[in-house]
Amino acid sequence: MNALPHPVLNVVGVSKSFGAVEVLSDISFQVGKGETVCVLGPSGSGKSTLLRCINWLEKPDAGHVYLNGEPVGVTSAGVVMNDRRLSQIRTRIGMVFQHFALWPHLTVLQNLIEAPLQVQRRPRAEIHEEALALLAKVGLHDKRDAFPARLSGGQKQRVGIARALAMRPDLLLFDEPTSALDPELVGEVLVVMRDLAHEGMTMVIVTHEMTFAREAATRVLFLDRGRMVETGTPDQFFSRPATERARQFLQRYAAEAVTAQR
């Protein structure tokens, strides 16, 4: 893989173990501006842990993460960052959670406004206007005063995406954003994500939606048992997988898709 000149995200040799189990082993990759990178692999392959290592919700045992060339988590001098410094960097990395993680004590609009106001301390009027525009964009303008408990799963996740976008992040991470949804609600979330991809948002998406990955991704990473087994364009990966493990993985998905259609 060629090194990008100015990657938004640069992951270098990240490893992570939980006790004796090695979940990630020496993972390196880069994401350029405007790329949509989908991380694929069987469950337990370490995809979510990799994502959580990028914004240091999980502390990597080894390796480095750089956002726009700046180190994340550990300073250039090798010192682990304090909470304040780490928080500052996290404001530039948005995250969308599998189970939404909306704040239940705040309304939809308040969920969007909370961090830009409290953390970034941007002017209230500007944030408010932007938040309303984002809600319109994800089709939930009329739900702005509802509490999260009143929303469907698909609506919750669209709010989750809008909440991440309200921070104007340089990079957006998605942790299996449609896995917790009823099948009929998956589509409405994928539409929003596809639009973001077209608009040139830089995204890393952990997902099991193969069709989405094939259509929307600029690049695919394939993880298996904590190792990065394969990377390439969706076309290469889905049509001509280079490794036996990727072939097996894709076959199983194809079989499941056929069963699901019946």
Binding site: L57, S87, M95, A164
Partner: peptide, 21 residues
Amino acid sequence: PKDQLEAAMSVGMSAGLRFRR
């Protein structure tokens, strides 16, 4: 719930802000 805290971390809230808000 742990993911509530993580959501707050992911938008860059410091420990004090996470607790208070």
